[in-house]
C-alpha cells in the first residue's frame, strides 16, 4: 500500500504493508531510531510520537492509519523551542537514568506543555500516565516538567513564535 504523510515537517511517501507498525516504519524505513520499542503493546509509552498533534503509541499505529497524517517524532521535537526547553529541564534535574523511556516522556511532556502547560502536579501526572519509567520513581520527571511549565510562562515571549503543531 502506498501512503503519503508528513513526517517531521517533510512530505514523505512509502509503499509498505498496510499493517506495518508506524514504529517499524520510523525505525526501518526512515532510520529514526529515537523512537523505542519497550513492550509492543501500547503499555510502556517508549514509542510515543505525535500524530496530528496528539500523542500515540507508534507500536499500535499502522501504515494504513498514516494517509494524510502529520507525524512528529522525538528527533523533530528535540529541535522545537519547547522541546529544547524540556530537554534543558530534564538535564538540569538529572532526571534521566537509563534513558530508554525518555524519548517517549519527552513527547508526552511536549504535548502537555503545548496543550495545557499549567504548573500543576496532578495534571502532569495524568498527562504522563501512559509512559512507564522503571528507573526514576518519576519524582525528578515531575520536577522537570513543573520546571519547564514555569519557565515557559516566565519566558512566554520566546515561545510565541513556534509554529503550531497540528
Amino acid at each position: 500500500m502506498k501512503v503519503n504523510f508528513n513526517l517531521n515537517n517533510k512530505k514523505v511517501s512509502i509503499d509498505v504493508d498496510p499493517m506495518k507498525r508506524l514504529l517499524d516504519i520510523l525505525r526501518e524505513d526512515f532510520g529514526l531510531l529515537g523512537t523505542k520499542e519497550g513492550c509492543g503493546e501500547g503499555e510502556c509509552g517508549a514509542c510515543t510520537v505525535l500524530m496530528d498533534g496528539k500523542p500515540v503509541t507508534s507500536c499500535l499505529v499502522n501504515a494504513c492509519h498514516l494517509e494524510g497524517k502529520t507525524i512528529l517524532t522525538v528527533e523533530a521535537i528535540a529541535k522545537e523551542p519547547i522541546g529544547k526547553l524540556l530537554i534543558d529541564c530534564f538535564d538540569e534535574t538529572n532526571a534521566v537514568q537509563c534513558g530508554f523511556c525518555f524519548p517517549g516522556f519527552l513527547v508526552s511532556s511536549y504535548y502537555f506543555l503545548i496543550s495545557d502547560g499549567e504548573q500543576n502536579l496532578d495534571k502532569i501526572k495524568e498527562a504522563l500516565s501512559g509512559n512507564i519509567c522503571r528507573c526514576t520513581g518519576y519524582q525528578k520527571i515531575f520536577e522537570s516538567v513543573m520546571l519547564a511549565c514555569k519557565k515557559k510562562q516566565l519566558y512566554s515571549h520566546r515561545f510565541s513564535l513556534i509554529h503550531p503543531v497540528r
Partner: peptide, 9 residues
Amino acid sequence: FASPLIQSQ
C-alpha cells in the same frame, strides 16, 4: 480510559 496515549487512538 486506558492511558492518554491509547485515548488518542
